[in-house]
């Protein structure tokens, strides 16, 4: 009994914890001009950006009339993004395709990179590499960009008349309408952050409890959730933009 527990302990200590340690809120800090940054987020985000740009450039560099392989896939993705933007924003969706598409692709590839890429091979002195979206900085950055985007969309479409939407049904709703501008980025960022962090935690905890087989369904569930979260973020961003562009009359 003692020997058994010891060996399990050792096994877990030596082998599994190096790939499955739970580290919540630990960051690998870099100093940049007196400011601190979370280096693990930056490193993984660079990798994600490199993956996106590289694969897109590779697949689209010489488009064929009859698409094959990579080009076909990227055309499918682009049509999907256009479809999402068009449904949410309406006929004037064209200029917003890059924003919505980049939101979707960046979040999606980030989430899946956290689940699929073997980041744990690379040891950091502090913290660990994971999906960039499990850091609150990333999700808040994206959510704030969304806020800026829908303000820009509304102001450029309707000028200062955009602000009349705050007293739109009745002026009584003014505080609630103003509150919405704060709850939108808040809910966007926390939804994404919480989902991705919780997903990674669940997988890690399950792996540390039962290393084999059992975590696999949860991992697949995590992949599914990651995709859904990316879609939700992009769709909501598009919906906010469309909402601020449409007429309230």
């Amino acid at each position: 009994m003692n020997v058994l527990s010891c060996s399990i302990n050792t096994l877990i200590k030596e082998g599994l914890y190096e790939i499955s340690g739970v580290e919540v809120g630990q960051h690998f800090y870099w100093q940049i001009g007196g400011f601190q940054v979370h280096a693990q987020v930056l490193i993984t985000s660079w990798v994600v950006i490199a993956i996106l740009l590289g694969s897109a450039a590779l697949a689209v560099r010489n488009p064929q009339t009859i698409p094959t392989g990579g080009q076909n896939f990227f055309e499918f993705v682009l049509e999907f993004i256009r479809d999402v933007s068009q449904t949410q924003i309406g006929e004037e969706y064209g200029p917003w395709v890059p924003f919505i598409g980049t939101l979707f692709l960046f979040i999606f590839v980030s989430n899946w990179s956290g689940a699929l890429l073997p980041w744990k091979i690379i040891q950091l002195p502090q913290g660990e590499l994971a999906a960039p979206t499990n850091d609150i900085n990333t999700t808040v950055a994206l959510a704030l960009l969304t806020s800026v985007a829908y303000f820009y969309a509304g102001l450029s479409k309707k000028g200062l008349g955009y602000f009349s939407k705050y007293i739109q049904p009745t002026p009584i709703l003014l505080p609630i309408n103003i509150l919405e501008d704060f709850t939108k980025p808040l809910s966007l960022s926390f939804r994404l952050f919480g989902n991705i962090l919780a997903d990674e935690l669940v997988v890690v905890v399950l792996v540390s409890l039962v290393p084999l087989v059992v975590p696999i369904p949860v991992m697949f569930l995590g992949l599914f959730t990651s995709g859904i979260q990316a879609l939700i973020f992009a769709t909501l961003a598009a919906a906010y933009i469309g909402e601020s562009m449409e007429g309230h009359h």
């Binding site: 940054v37 930056l42 950006i49 960046f106 900085n137 950055a141």
Partner: peptide, 16 residues
């Protein structure tokens, strides 16, 4: 833990 990471991610996103 908000810090300079946030604006850097914003810049990275816009670049992307």
């Amino acid at each position: 833990d908000f810090n300079l990471t946030l604006p850097i991610i914003v810049v990275e996103f816009l670049f992307l």
